[in-house]
Design a binder for these strands. Structure first.
Lengths: 341, 341
DNA sequence: GTGAAAGCGCTAACAT
DNA sequence: ATGTTAGCGCTTTCAC
């Protein structure tokens, strides 16, 4: 019933527990014979190292904290999948925390991570996080390596991996323009997070680049829900708003847009073209298939993990933060393809 | 730069560190004045408890390990979402591990959990796990609380939460029968996991119950992929196999079935009805909308967490394992509704 | 209501 | 190549 420790192994073999510890850690100064004996005894006694003790003593836990808004959002669970894959392959474990889009929860999670003495933190911030968030400042103050992905705090000098949201907005809009659409509605969100700002900028620059005037009435603030997409289309149609394409901040919103357009008897893509953002699984399964911008979710997670590993290697040299920017990928499907391509 | 400990707080206040520890843990024997002073000093010095030390000493880590095949599968990420929500609310953190459907990885994950002295493990086993899996046996041997969800080891006396897969298979089939379908194709999987066995049993019993003979040619072994659904339909149509409905083990497979049927000019649900399993997000967005069986994913995670908490409370009484069985929910959509309902 | 002291199971610097 | 020793930062029993 009592847990077996290195002391038990030492007793069995009539050596000291420090020799056992060295043998188990494959210390070069230990003879092969001793190592073999120790390993066999360890196995026989069913010994398991106590990581708590080892971490406490060594100051390294081999655990990193990952904090995301919600695993129920496929974007985040895919990124976490990528993070875990790489970190696991490098001997790290993942402590997981969901902020549930609440700054308060997020702060509590960070606090727990700090208490657990994680070797680093990978995070995507809540929608309402401000640029000088205390919790994140505390991470830096304690010299705990920090990596942001997707939703970052722009003013903090922290490594991050994002997609080029500006470019994402640009190529989505450009694609619509090239398909002959001219009055392109853009559904965006509150502008406190850079990702939405950037997409909007990309949208505006694309219009300008192709000599199309920006019409403020064609930029509306919305959210990630299918419902919003339906409602805004219903409203705009009722108002007689004149648009011939929609670039939505997220695929679910775009889906709502499509549903309402179809219900209103508007042909997609002949009368109105639609493009979303995120490449959700359903996009290729619906009719018409939804054009979108893919965000390389798993790659994003993998890159975030690699960024952390790099950061950790050069920890003493205190390197300047590194920004990895992934390419957004235009996925053209039938919802926006009215020319031959 | 040096970490602040309870000793630092003690020095500041000219009391002993054990008083500080008690004050921080809200020990009843400590005066309110002392508690207040300690808390203020802790805050001022920016103290963070070292959980490694506290866990090592107390023997409780307040961490539980969660091991799933892959977070990239929405079913699992939703369940983990539910688990984290409840465990977090009860003061626990989640150590996450993906087995990637590999028994070897799974064993390594369990080993790490054991080394990290987790207070319990919640798991959904890999497809190839056998009933006497060493890693899971080891968990029990160490008296570490264990809870399975969805994919369980039947012969192990372990608490678990599943849905009633038998009933799921039954009501899916019954629904098709009531819609007038008679030659119902069932796509199942290898029979080593109970979930697929149960669904198949439910299917057969439903047929029998309604006096429809079971035709072995209408039961095929497949997998979760859309491709499999497409291919099997193509094959069966080529063979001239006569079926008028399909009950697929998973929505993606069902989606492949629908796509191929439509491409072959077969009307859904008029000529062939289709029902899937899992209630993936896309089901309500595709045309025709896909009927399915919902598995209460988030609830499943929450129940698994509650089961663990209960288990942990009565740890000394060594309670008999408790099986929570959730109701499968029939979701009727247009892919299988050819009568008025 | 607070102090003293032991020890959780390791790592690592210093001996030999 | 192995032993000795001192902690890591807490919790907890036993004093007073």
């Amino acid at each position: 019933m009592k847990r077996v420790t290195i002391l038990d192994i030492a007793k069995e073999l009539n050596i000291t527990f420090s020799t056992v510890a060295r043998a188990l850690n494959d210390h070069p100064a230990i003879s092969d014979a001793t190592k073999k004996a120790v390993r066999e005894t360890a196995e026989r006694l069913n010994y398991r190292q106590n990581k708590l003790a080892s971490s406490l003593r060594s100051g390294r836990s081999n655990v990193i904290g990952v904090i995301v808004p919600s695993l129920h959002v496929s974007f985040f669970s895919s990124v976490v999948h990528g993070i875990e894959k790489i970190m696991n392959a490098n001997g790290y474990n993942i402590l997981l925390y969901q902020s549930n889009e609440s700054k308060k929860h997020q702060a509590k999670g960070i606090d727990t991570f700090l208490q657990s003495r994680v070797d680093g933190i990978i995070a995507s911030v809540t929608l309402d996080t401000d640029n000088n968030d205390d919790a994140y400042q505390e991470i830096k103050k304690r010299n705990t390596p920090l990596v942001f992905f997707d939703r970052i705090l722009e003013t903090m000098p922290v490594s991050s991996v994002t997609i080029d949201d500006y470019k994402g907005g640009f190529i989505a809009t450009e694609h619509l323009i090239k398909q002959g659409y001219r009055r392109i509605l853009h559904i965006t969100a509150e502008q406190n997070l850079s990702i939405f700002k950037e997409r909007l900028l990309g949208y505006m620059d694309a219009l300008e680049h192709y000599g199309i005037p920006v019409d403020e009435k064609l930029v509306v603030k919305g959210n990630f829900s299918l419902e919003f997409g339906r409602n805004i289309v219903k409203e705009l149609l009722a108002e007689g708003c004149d648009f011939d394409a929609v670039f939505a901040l997220e695929d679910y919103t775009a889906m709502g847009v499509m549903q309402q357009l179809m219900e209103s008897g508007i042909k997609i893509p002949e009368q109105v073209g639609v493009i979303g953002f995120a490449n959700e699984a359903f996009g290729s399964l619906v009719t018409p298939q939804l054009s979108t911008i893919a965000q390389q979710t798993i790659t994003m997670g993998e890159e975030a993990a690699r960024l952390f590993l790099e950061l950790n290697k050069q920890e003493k040299t205190n390197p300047s933060p590194k920004k990895v920017i992934l390419e957004p990928i235009l996925i053209v499907r039938s919802s926006s393809k009215r020319l031959g391509e």
